[in-house]
Design a protein around this nucleic acid. Sequence first.
DNA 1: GGCAATTTAATTGTATACAATACTCTTCGA
DNA 2: TCGAAGAGTATTGTATACAATTAAATTGCC
Lengths: 158, 158
Amino acid sequence: MPKVSPVLLDEQLCFSIYSASKKFNHFYQSALAPFGLTYPQYIAMLVLWEDAPLTVHQLGERLELDSGTLTPLLKRLEKQGWVTRVRSRTDERQVLIHLTETAEAKRDEVYSRIGQCQTLLGMTDNEIDSMMTELVTVKDQLDTVSHQRLIAKEVDQD
Amino acid sequence: MPKVSPVLLDEQLCFSIYSASKKFNHFYQSALAPFGLTYPQYIAMLVLWEDAPLTVHQLGERLELDSGTLTPLLKRLEKQGWVTRVRSRTDERQVLIHLTETAEAKRDEVYSRIGQCQTLLGMTDNEIDSMMTELVTVKDQLDTVSHQRLIAKEVDQD
DNA sequence: GGCAATTTAATTGTATACAATACTCTTCGA
DNA sequence: TCGAAGAGTATTGTATACAATTAAATTGCC
């Protein structure tokens, strides 16, 4: 083993992001407590408010979640009266997620609550845009290298 | 309800961070597959390589995780031979997490693998520093407003 | 038309997360 | 020193995540 540098937790970008992600979840989850929505349920509702009805697969593409996560999540949203899950007639494999009238009716209340959260965060649109742009770069790079990783293994000894 | 702006998923910083966090987890988890470490197990090992032995509480402070998460995680690390869990003699409430010799021996291999991952990511130290600084600002703000949220509720109508 | 390959959801199994609770041990004040 | 308060860990219950598998439906290809 050649000389290696120590890896310190506090210098890891991954941990910074992991930690920020958890804090955001708690923040929105408690902001949305009056509606009884968890964070993943909330982002599912965001997509549905934009585009319902959607199939489980389409929703999963937007949220980057698979049916293993979404099926139980959507069953909970259904039980709580936000959505309905109906087999498509034209393609019996698909399940269409529709919004209930209750969900439509509560949309603006949730939008308004989120607007308040964004205000509390106190970031300008420019700051948010710039941060999201950087994050996209990182994510793209992660997608790219995830495919190259096996090659990297072969240059293990440098 | 006053006029509200739509909330679009793709404009949410929280989702960008949530998504990036998941990608980082997968990236490191597959990079560390030869060692059999999950991402949370890996960051726990990072802290222990810096500072072992630590109590569950001390480890939790560094990782921002509680005993509900750490106890089972540490039991798995113990079963896989990375750590030992021993009740402190001076304070029977505490459990000290020690590294095994195997863990000490594998440290540099893991450090090296992570070094390769950082190289693959292709970011300069400055880029990483700057991004982490921005993230600290966001996290601090989230910590601050999490305490003020109840007050915010009272200015609901603006 | 008939069947293999593909697509879509659901299921299973493992591993986080975290709130809430329980339990044990320690500390601290009367 | 005795008991209440507090600290540290484990447990319980709920909700994600995701790999891998299953099952049903559709599509393609002959």
